[in-house]
């Protein structure tokens, strides 16, 4: 919260201090970060910066697509990570129904939310790539349609989780919903691709791009950095969700106190500038 980076909550990296004195107690009171998350976050920031540098400056424009190909350095990795995230959600849901431990429920919920964010970025960059290359923002291609449906499916899943907050059966019901949604993915994919081939004749397929070594390297860098971002976000989202459930157990008193604290802080905090991406990691 304190926007002065000179007074970092965490730059003192001696972990053995954490259970010592009131000074460290104050530090321990801050946030969902930990030493591990800070390392991952820093790596993610560095590799993101490198991806931007290589993607925007150092890599050459594509012979067919010109500069628009630069969007693929974001689009393809985010798509892959989004599918990975939904896979983690399905896996976590199944594991929850089997093991019934809180961990798997938190994992599934956190991964679904991060996955939705990545899917959103993937759809956005995909549309911005399609406009110059295909001439339209959107085509009813099988992969696009499946991704869009996936986006909506998991928005629904998240809405269900939000509605069920406080219900004793939240974890189990969400797990069932997660699996039901995941089971749908292959059917959706199959039906849309078949529907598409029957109705449109020829589909516009992504033009085959000859990827030079530098372009492949940049793409790999993109994969690495978005995987790291996913990992970092998962750490924080998972812990946040853990906090949410703990607080939920404490009950209404806490909620009231929180509202009061919010009202109190609204006056004092003022416009804390939203720092650049992931800046709060350190």
């Amino acid at each position: 919260m304190t926007s002065a980076p000179a007074n970092p909550l965490a730059s003192g990296s001696e972990p053995d201090q954490t259970d010592a004195a009131p000074v460290t107690e104050r530090r321990a009171l801050e946030g969902t970060g930990s030493r591990g998350s800070r390392i991952v976050g820093t790596l993610a920031l560095i590799s993101l910066a490198a991806t931007a540098l290589y993607g925007l400056v150092l890599s050459p424009p594509d012979a067919n697509q010109g500069n628009a190909a630069r969007l693929l350095y974001i689009h393809v990795p985010t798509a892959t990570v989004a599918y990975l995230a939904f896979g983690v959600t399905a896996f976590g849901s199944a594991m929850y129904l089997w093991k019934r431990t809180e961990f798997w429920d938190l994992l599934a919920g956190a991964s679904a939310e991060v996955g939705v964010v990545f899917t959103g970025i993937c759809l956005l960059t995909g549309m911005l790539w399609g406009r110059p290359i295909w001439g339209v923002y959107w085509v009813w291609d099988a992969r696009l349609t499946t991704t869009l449906l996936l986006f909506v499916l998991f928005l629904g899943y998240l809405a269900l989780r939000r509605v069920l907050v406080g219900s004793p059966s939240r974890a189990k019901w969400s797990a069932v919903a997660g699996i039901v949604a995941a089971v749908d993915i292959p059917i959706v994919h199959y039906s849309t691709s078949w529907w598409n081939t029957l109705h449109q004749g020829t589909t516009i397929s992504p033009q085959k791009t000859q990827m030079g070594g530098l372009m492949l390297f940049t793409l790999g860098l993109g994969f690495l950095s978005f995987l790291l971002v996913y990992w970092w976000l998962m750490i924080h989202r998972f812990r946040l969700q853990y906090l949410e459930t703990r607080l939920d157990e404490v009950g209404l008193d806490t909620a009231i106190a929180e509202r009061r604290a919010e009202a109190g802080r609204a006056g004092t905090s003022g416009p804390t500038a939203a720092g650049p991406e992931l800046a709060e990691v350190r």
Binding site: V152, G156, Y157, A177, D184, V188
Partner: peptide
């Protein structure tokens, strides 16, 4: 799933319609 939770009238379409998209197709 949504029986008995608040907001079920609006939640059901959001959950159900994407799932049954293959049926529509």
């Amino acid at each position: 799933l949504v029986a008995g939770v608040r907001g079920r009238e609006t939640l059901l379409p959001l959950l159900l319609l994407p799932i049954v998209a293959p049926v529509l197709i």
